[in-house]
């Protein structure tokens, strides 16, 4: 009986990971009304950062986060400050083009440096399974993914609600010209926001790297997951993104259970289509 709950539980756990994959994309859309097509590459870049740090310093992947977080923050900050800020106020197309170009450049740079071989972040957690009275088996790595995702989103939520900088970011998302009038330097706020989005991407990159294998071009695959999460949950909504992650995770794994593993992706996107038909702005999104 309990065994049949496995797909549901694993789906929820995987959903926590999906949510943190989507959160950076959702955040940038909420704040700047822009879509960052290079979000997946920011993630995979962090996976490689982590690989590098763990090989050089002999650190376990989770500990490399101490170094990967600041590295990703700085990379994101500089990207926005020197690249994306140049097309501020020029509509969505230039931003899309730049981020698409950036995604291609990053993919090929990773290909040159790291070769197209499959990589993974080696951790002992991958072979461990939580055994609940012999009835229910949950991979420990999924628990770590879920915990990492929830921590990241919870932390981001508190940051946005409680800190002065978080409030300033929300203010500029609410009304751009009014926040300028109050003395907020939009370029700086956007650069900081992109830095934070890159930190969320780093979290998901390291978790994904520990759980699955990755390649230089894996970013695209996760960008699509991020889109799925954000479309189900609602662009720009933090709780919505979390909910979206859970729903996508559950629908994939429960779908795979009933329809067969080959239908995992299909069942996820069927749910996405249904949400899109019934509630185009996403479950918790605003019109």
């Amino acid at each position: 009986m309990l065994t049949s709950l496995e797909p549901l539980i694993n789906g929820i756990l995987l959903g926590g990971l999906y949510a943190v994959i989507g959160i950076g994309l959702s955040m940038i859309f909420g704040i700047m009304k822009q879509v960052n097509l290079a979000h997946g590459e920011l993630m995979i870049l962090s996976s490689y950062f982590s690989l590098l740090f763990s090989q050089l310093l002999g650190l376990p992947p989770l500990l490399t986060l101490i170094l990967v977080f600041p590295a990703s923050f700085i990379f994101g900050y500089l990207l926005q400050a020197f690249l994306f800020n140049r097309v501020l106020g020029k509509g969505m197309e230039p931003y899309l083009m730049i981020s698409f170009g950036l995604s291609i450049i990053l993919q090929n740079a990773l290909l040159l440096i790291f070769t197209p071989d499959a990589r993974s972040l080696k951790t002992g957690l991958i072979i461990q399974t939580l055994d609940v009275y012999g009835l229910l088996h949950v991979p420990v790595i999924y628990l770590v993914d879920f915990a990492g995702g929830v921590l990241m989103i919870g932390f981001l939520h508190l940051f946005m609600k409680r800190t002065y900088l978080g409030r300033a970011i929300r203010a500029s998302a609410d009304d751009l010209s009014a926040s300028k009038l109050m003395g907020i330097n939009i370029r700086k706020i956007y650069a900081l926001a992109m830095g934070i989005a890159a930190v969320t991407a780093a979290m998901s990159g390291v978790l994904v790297g520990m759980t699955f294998t990755f390649y230089p071009h894996s970013g695209t695959q996760y960008l699509i997951i991020a889109f799925g999460v954000v479309i189900i949950g609602g662009m720009g909504s933090l709780p919505g993104t979390f909910l979206g992650g859970l729903i996508l995770g559950i629908s994939q794994l429960v779908g795979a259970q009933f329809l067969g593993p080959g239908f995992q992706l299909l069942s996820g996107y069927l749910i996405l289509l249904i949400v899109l038909t019934i509630r185009p702005q996403g479950l918790l999104g605003r019109k």
């Binding site: 002065y164 409030r167 300033a168 929300r170 203010a171 998302a173 609410d174 009304d175 010209s177 009014a178 926040s179 009038l181 109050m182 907020i184």
Partner: peptide
């Protein structure tokens, strides 16, 4: 042009 999703207190803080 107040910040609709910020509280009154937060709006004033942003001022």
């Amino acid at each position: 042009k107040i910040f609709a999703n910020l509280t009154v207190h937060e709006n004033l803080l942003m001022g």
